[in-house]
């Protein structure tokens, strides 16, 4: 299982980025099981990269391949299967259903391709300190709580790669560490790779490769 980037550059970026960046305009292969850290200052295209890899946007030149298959050639149904079975994401902007409870938000993802039993939701929520918030509407939760919900949601399905787009922006160090621990456990259990994009290095992420965007 690999994700290959072949000279990918967002259409809205200047060509000069190819020289400045270690990712844009380069040939890269991410293998399953690898932990990739991408350090990127604001505006360098972190979210764009995550969205391109997840297949949500396609305004880029070059190619992204999942197992030698171009994402550009995917149909909407192919993307549905890709997101259900092979790739998971924690969005920077969280993207929860505001009118549903925390548990409903998590169950909506879990039932799609259940990797864990329903009880695991409670266990993970307890572990990240939001066990008491399960029956609260997600719009009532704080950003920190919502971010933890988004993290748990990403871990309820099978995946080969986990994409993290500034996953700890609303969390303190202690909670970030707990969440990272849980994510590493889950990735290990699946033998999956992690592509972690953030503003700066984070000590508690044991990356195997580091790139500057």
């Amino acid at each position: 299982m690999t994700i290959t980037l072949q000279e990918v550059l967002p259409t809205y970026f200047d060509e000069s980025r190819r020289q400045q960046s270690e990712v844009w305009g380069k040939q890269l292969v991410f293998n399953k099981g690898e932990y990739i850290k991408i350090v990127a200052p604001s505006g360098s295209g972190k979210s764009s990269l995550s969205h391109f890899l997840y297949g949500m946007r396609n305004e880029y030149n070059g190619q992204i391949l999942y197992n030698d298959q171009k994402l550009h050639s995917f149909t909407v149904e192919d993307f549905a299967r890709y997101r259900k079975d092979h790739i998971s994401i924690v969005f920077q902007d969280l993207r929860l259903f505001p009118e549903q409870t925390v548990r409903e938000n998590l169950e909506l993802k879990r039932q799609l391709n259940p990797y864990h039993p329903a009880e695991k939701i409670t266990e993970m929520a307890e572990r990240l300190g939001i066990g008491s918030r399960l029956s609260v509407k997600s719009r009532i939760c704080s950003y920190g709580e919502q971010q933890r919900v988004a993290i748990i949601r990403a871990l309820l399905q099978p995946f080969d790669f986990l994409l993290l787009d500034e996953p700890f922006s609303h969390l303190d160090d202690n909670n970030s560490k707990k969440a990272m621990e849980l994510m590493l456990e889950e990735a290990k259990a699946r033998g999956a790779g992690i592509v972690f994009a953030d503003l700066e290095r984070i000590d508690f992420f044991p990356w195997t490769r580091l790139y500057h965007l």
Partner: peptide, 15 residues
């Protein structure tokens, strides 16, 4: 918004 998020999460449009 809700439907778009469902599709982003991996729900099949056909389903």
């Amino acid at each position: 918004d809700n439907l778009q998020l469902l599709l982003v999460l991996g729900y099949s449009p056909d389903w």
